[in-house]
């Protein structure tokens, strides 16, 4: 099978998997279930594409589907602030930085060698079986009626961050830590004036 046929087969399988997930969700939990199926297949499909695609930039772009799918799952859970923060930070910030790093690779599909599909399948299935068995043994699955009403408003989050009996100290410490990390990164990355002298014709400026 050549590369193109493999691609088509992979994406067709992905599409049918997504449709099956949505149909199953619709059957078990109505519109909400269908939406869950949609977002879940977005998340997982993006992850699978990320592994499957041979071009590293395409892998990075497929992460966008994963992040957006996770944001959709947050919305289904009633955490709209988390969902929007997920899009703003992961897609608008982190993914752009990743792309900035890998963008200079050429769009050549033969660049990465064909992954050893059989070995990959064995590894993934083995890992999933192991983790699944562990999780199933430990977790006490929450029933729908025992879940607390999940509604996080931006107001509540703000109050929790800034009230004295909330997380104000942790919040401020995280802010200080991030600032220190930023300043340190700039300090390490910047050129000293002595490095610049050799770069100019006149012997520095």
């Amino acid at each position: 099978m050549d590369l193109r046929k493999q691609q088509i087969a992979f994406y067709t399988a992905l599409l049918f998997g997504a449709l099956a997930a949505m149909g199953w969700g619709l059957k078990t939990a109505g519109i909400q279930g269908a939406m869950f199926g949609f977002f879940a297949s977005f998340t997982l499909g993006g992850g699978l594409m990320c592994i499957w695609e041979r071009s590293v930039v395409r892998s990075a772009f497929s992460l966008m589907a994963t992040f957006c799918g996770v944001a959709g799952l947050f919305i289904l859970l009633g955490h709209d602030f988390l969902a929007m923060a997920q899009i703003l930070i992961y897609v608008g910030g982190i993914l752009v930085l990743i792309l900035f790093g890998v963008m200079l690779t050429p769009p050549d599909l033969n660049e990465r060698q064909l992954p050893r599909v059989g070995l990959g399948v064995v590894a993934v299935v083995g890992a999933l079986a192991f983790v699944g068995a562990k999780v199933a043994a430990v977790v006490n699955w929450a029933q729908a009626e025992t879940l607390p009403p999940a509604e996080t408003k931006a107001e509540q989050i703000g109050a929790a961050f800034l009230r004295a009996d909330g997380y104000v100290i942790a919040f401020e410490l995280a802010a200080v830590l991030l600032t220190v990390a930023l300043v340190a990164a700039v300090y390490i990355a910047r050129r000293k004036p002595s490095d610049l002298i050799d770069l100019t014709e006149e012997g520095g400026y």
Binding site: F61, I87, L88, G92, V96, L99
Partner: peptide, 10 residues
């Protein structure tokens, strides 16, 4: 609005 308009970069 800010979140979705940051998608345009991608």
């Amino acid at each position: 609005i800010l979140a979705f308009s940051s998608l345009t970069t991608i």
